[in-house]
């Protein structure tokens, strides 16, 4: 049976489309739930409603989580209704963004 920790670790490879930083460190990974049938639900929080990268992210997440043993299906919710703020970005990611000319 796949664990939440294993899914979270696998998702470290999925990065924000703008910044080479994982979704978790950008404050965009909100919840992971797994049911008895191996269905993994990933709750994202996409900061911008018009995000053109949602489909890419969805596919990247499905691909990397489906590859884990014990996963039958992956359901991704974009979480357009969830609040996002820069306070949710971790310090290391903020520092990397500044060196790339993005003040946060």
């Amino acid at each position: 049976m796949v664990t939440v920790d294993a899914v979270r670790e696998a998702l470290e490879t999925v990065e924000d489309p703008h910044v080479p930083v994982s979704l978790r460190r950008m404050g965009m990974l909100r919840d992971i739930a797994i049911d008895d049938g191996g269905v993994v639900q990933v709750q994202l929080c996409i900061p911008c409603l018009g995000c053109p990268g949602v489909t890419l992210l969805r596919e990247a997440i499905e691909q990397c989580v489906t590859a884990l043993p014990g996963v039958s299906r992956v359901v991704v919710d974009a979480g357009f209704f969830l609040p996002w703020s820069r306070d949710m970005v971790d310090a290391e990611a903020k520092a990397l963004m500044r060196t790339s000319g993005i003040q946060i």
Binding site: C48, L49, G50, C51, P52, F80, F81
Partner: peptide, 14 residues
């Protein structure tokens, strides 16, 4: 335009 298409998408999904 991008944001406003996004509002449409999110409302249609809702």
């Amino acid at each position: 335009a991008t944001a406003t298409f996004g509002h449409t998408r999110a409302l249609y999904l809702y």
